[in-house]
Amino acid sequence: MPWTRDDMTARAARELKDGFYVNLGIGIPTLVANHIPPGMEVTLQSENGMLGMGPYPFEGEEDPDLVNAGKMTISELDSSSYFNSAESFAMIRGGHIDLSVLGAMQVAANGDLANWMVPGKMVKGMGGAMDLVAGVKRVIVVMEHCEKSGRSKLVRECTLPLTGKGVVDLLITDLGVFEINRGRGAVRLVELAPGVTLEEVRARTEAAFVTDLV
């Protein structure tokens, strides 16, 4: 059984360490917050201007002035702070955030990441993703291994407009976990989702990779 989205984000949560400052991208990466191990202190940064993001508010306590980067209503913690967008990205660009978890349309063997537009079809904009991959110490991508058409999203070379060059450290898909190491050395498959075979991963992956798994 390949991993579900929840399994993938739970796996991503295992990369968290006590005391980390973490930025979670919109969409699937947001779910990583549900898997922070009890007793571990992780501070979530929201690039629209908040450190110490709390859970969704109780019904009736939602505040239009308090949203995350996905524009979802959230709550504050005793430890929270607010700041403007320039300050927020100073903290991101300046290397003060330990970890970023992002979604992707394509990840290439050389560590390139594409996640903001499909020319002529879909355009959402890069938001803060280009700044995050340029400044955060470690970048983890969580994505489905293949497109709906079955085409591999772990590619030899990105065909979509890039978000960053040589920026991905670790890739978690529904099939397994790959060390990308920003394109330094070969892509290495280090974990398989339960029940997924190496042959299946080989058949469904465009990029070359090495592995010690059998």
Binding site: S85, S88, F89, R93, G128, M130, A134, K165
Partner: peptide
């Protein structure tokens, strides 16, 4: 990029005509 946008505006108001950033390289 969002951080570049914020900084371009900050720079505009602070009398700084341009700045360098790693964001968007490549």
């Amino acid at each position: 990029p969002q951080g570049t946008l914020a900084e371009r505006i900050r720079a505009g108001g602070a009398g700084i005509p341009a700045f360098y950033t790693r964001t968007g390289v490549g």
